[in-house]
Design a protein around this nucleic acid. Structure first.
Lengths: 263, 263
DNA sequence: TCTAGGTTAACCCAATTAATCACAAAACGA
DNA sequence: TCGTTTTGTGATTAATTGGGTTAACCTAGA
């Protein structure tokens, strides 16, 4: 099974290197060289499944990225940088690119983004929904109302809520089960707790959020109806923003009533 | 000229997004949406130069990456995440990928990399040469001898040298000009200084390095003979490793003689 | 000088992707 | 309600990229 696990690692590494922008030949060649430490075109061709005559192209590509050095002899020999160095190099490269991208986009972004929206936006995917939640948390200035099921109260969300309380934002939190209530109490001590609005437990409900009374988000957990076994359950959310946004108006009404009631 | 600078920013952003793995349509669509904040297929098509009928595909792609949300109305409206969020998203994504890559490569990398090499490896590009220098610094256990011209004594190198002295590595440093000598004295106080070996000033010499008496690197600065104006001057280095490596033997002889002499 | 292996580069084919087109459905104006 | 315009989806074509192959050209050693 050692070969199998190693083969698997190779496949993963090749995949990542291709995503990084290398051609498949270059990616395979590099992985082969990392395994060999050092080798000739012949060696690489044997273990990498790359036509021998194309190893040279691949190495040129890798040289451009500073991943491989060559020895000018016949036969030429190739040397790959260490895995640790590779990882650092890739990370640094993309840190840089992300910075460039952000700067460019900042220049394009209009000064004032429309905050008042008539309609409702849809988002799917747990990761993406969490992104929106975090973004709304960061932009909160006054008050966050947040309601969630256990499995969606992940660390990043808790951190964002804590950061908000530190900024002086009031937080009203609720979980649908006693366990969640307890965890929240512990992890976000600054938060005000309130009872769940209604019997939520037997619905596929996910989270429910209102920020500063003008941005709201509602999500549900859905078993992928396509029957794809890869995604056990996916999250879908809708959100809207603006004083008179229909979704906002409805949720604000409900929350206001309920919160005033319980206090 | 505001339009020009903005157009330029757009081009840069599109370039980066394509590198990130998006199709050109998706990249252009996203940039258009960032500029608009919100818009329909028609709007996007107009400012992004994407066929209207293809905007929908592009948006699907962007949705998969969590970069865009859509409003289910007719006409559909599209909303792009903020530039700041985009930058963070890209960076996080690649931090993760770099980690995955490193792990996979670690599994592949042979336990003991051959340290004894007969030949000499060539490296080109200032960035890449610096990478090697840094790597050798990090692996140093006993002693580093380093000689450099002013312009190549950048912060990252100084930091690496400092880190080495902190680990208890002896360092012998030399610059080719009095100014460099001075800077080194200041910034790496733990280093032992010695006089330059020979008249180096009027040669295109770059750096000269020996680590633990068994790894050496020599670089020169060359004016790109291809006459490419983009790279004012490029650095080319050769390096070798191993007790009996020819380059190592020669440099060790020179250094030993000179250092013993001056002490 | 000849041969075997190493290197370079030119070429072809397949797959992806950009771009166009055609059509159905929905909204809008009269 | 009907006709026109706009929107969304799918199919179809053109072009470019990149994997794969082949051939020719070197270099080293016998």
């Amino acid at each position: 099974m050692s070969a199998n696990s190693s083969d698997n690692a190779r496949a993963v590494a090749i995949e990542q290197l291709e995503q990084f922008g290398l051609s498949t030949y270059a990616a395979r060649t590099f992985v082969a060289l990392v395994g060999l430490g050092t080798g000739t075109a012949k060696d690489v061709s044997r273990v990498a499944d790359v036509p021998r005559t194309r190893v040279y192209d691949a190495v040129d590509e890798l040289r451009d990225h500073g991943l491989v050095d060559v020895q000018q002899s016949t036969p030429k020999e190739f040397w790959a940088i260490s895995s640790e160095t590779t990882g650092r190099k890739v990370e640094r490269e993309w840190q840089h690119r992300a910075a460039v991208l952000t700067e460019a986009l900042d220049e394009i972004e209009p000064i004032e983004r429309r905050d008042e929206q008539r309609g409702v936006w849809t988002v799917s995917g747990r990761e993406t929904v969490t992104d929106r939640v975090l973004e709304f948390c960061e932009n909160a200035e006054d008050r966050i109302v947040y309601m969630t099921v256990e499995e969606l109260l992940t660390k990043d969300v808790v951190d964002a809520l804590e950061a908000a309380t530190d900024r002086g934002v009031d937080i009203d939190l609720a979980g649908v089960s006693p366990e969640v209530q307890e965890r929240i109490q512990e992890e976000v001590p600054g938060a005000e707790l309130f009872e769940s609005l209604w019997m939520w437990s037997d619905t596929p409900a996910g989270r429910l959020m209102m920020v500063d009374g003008e941005t709201t988000l509602v999500s549900v957990l859905v078993d992928n109806e396509n029957g794809q076994p890869t995604t056990p359950e996916s999250e879908t959310a809708i959100w809207g923003s603006g004083e008179s946004n229909s979704l906002v108006v409805v949720l604000r009404a409900i929350f206001t009533w309920r919160l005033d009631d319980s206090n």
